[in-house]
Design a protein around this nucleic acid. Structure first.
Lengths: 208, 208
DNA sequence: GTCTATAATCGGATAGAC
DNA sequence: GTCTATCCGATTATAGAC
């Protein structure tokens, strides 16, 4: 198959250039979608921020829906990693604290992705209900069972496991989703403060 | 002044009817604005949900902006009440717990208002930065000072007061803002669970 | 690959009849 | 007060030149 063999090697420059342009578009689109949601975002805004014309943007992505779907897909691929990283063989309190830290780090490093997710949920999760049902929920069920086991063994204080997970999501994502409010009420970098507070809070709550 | 005296009494039915229609519009608008934000919402959606034509809606409110401003104004009028309700003369731990309960009750009873607020913050708080700066921030400063005093007196465990307030906002509003996710991951009414969990969490954190 | 021009539709707001 | 008809700018997407 000479044709198929040539394809990747024949145009490495073009492929790299294409990927670069796509990245620029996705970067710009993430800014706007995260702020205004799918319906509140216009292709003009994305194109201007990406430094190109609207028709040119549509040369790389067939439609507005496609740009959004790509961002959401990339995001969801990484969304569950911290929860999956809880080690059933580890020390319970430390495993939960490690999860909290990883989740907080994700919110700190990818605030726009967090806001994109939040906006989808607030809008009723029309595009990610499948992910929530098939991806998140089974993993939550699994983790809840794990935590219940730890509690039964007396290695973790008796707390509602479902509410525990909700609280971790709320507390970590808040710093990304409500950044605009935080910046006004208490300006300055409070990432360290948040980490220390959550560590203190969950240690007191969970230590048997 | 017979004219001015007549005005209110002369058309009580018309005024009542007008208020009723306005309420129907605001009710419908809250549904849509809370889900899709200002830019993602159309007057057609609001009008249809309110059971009237778009021009008729615009007879009651001059513009889309006015409908939104009215909802936001009504919301912000009540937003700070729970925080203002903290009694400096009360027992510290119980006062904080009472604040948490009131805030949670507000999220439970007015979830759309919570989502409207969240959407504004995610969008960069373009329409409520004045409220955050002039209304919320001074009250936060005041409350932080109060909490620091309680801690200095040894009546409250040593925690970061700013982070404490952020955590309360995050945990209580989460149940309204992320209701769609909660409903999928753990269906059913968990209002009681949430209240018990928060009570347990903050009691352990704050008891000296 | 990138652009200008444009089609087709949507959305906020107005005019004017009833 | 409520409606139909309509204006007009905004928005998604396409056509076609370069």
């Amino acid at each position: 198959m000479p044709a198929a063999e040539d394809q990747p090697a024949a145009s490495p420059a073009r492929s790299a250039r294409r990927q670069q342009t796509e990245s620029a578009i996705l970067e710009a689109a993430l800014d706007v979608f995260a702020m205004h949601g799918f319906r509140g975002t216009t292709l003009d805004q994305i194109a201007e921020r990406a430094g190109m014309s609207k028709p040119n943007l549509l040369y790389y992505f067939p439609s507005k829906e496609d740009v959004h779907a790509r961002l959401l897909g990339d995001l969801l691929d990484h969304w569950l990693a911290p929860l999956r990283g809880i080690d059933p063989g580890g020390e319970p309190v430390e495993e939960i604290l490690r999860y909290v830290r990883r989740k907080l780090a994700m919110s700190h490093d990818y605030p726009r992705e967090s806001r994109l997710f939040a906006g989808e949920i607030i809008a009723g999760a029309p595009r990610i209900s499948g992910f929530l049902t098939d991806g998140l929920r089974p993993l939550v069920d699994e983790t809840v069972a794990l935590i219940q086991g730890w509690i039964a063994q007396g290695r973790l204080a008796a707390v509602d496991p479902v509410q525990l997970l909700f609280s971790i999501w709320a507390l970590t994502q808040h710093h990304a989703d409500f950044a605009a409010q935080i910046e006004i009420v208490a300006p300055g970098d409070r990432a360290g403060d948040a980490g220390a507070f959550l560590d203190q809070m969950y240690r007191r709550l969970l230590t048997p």
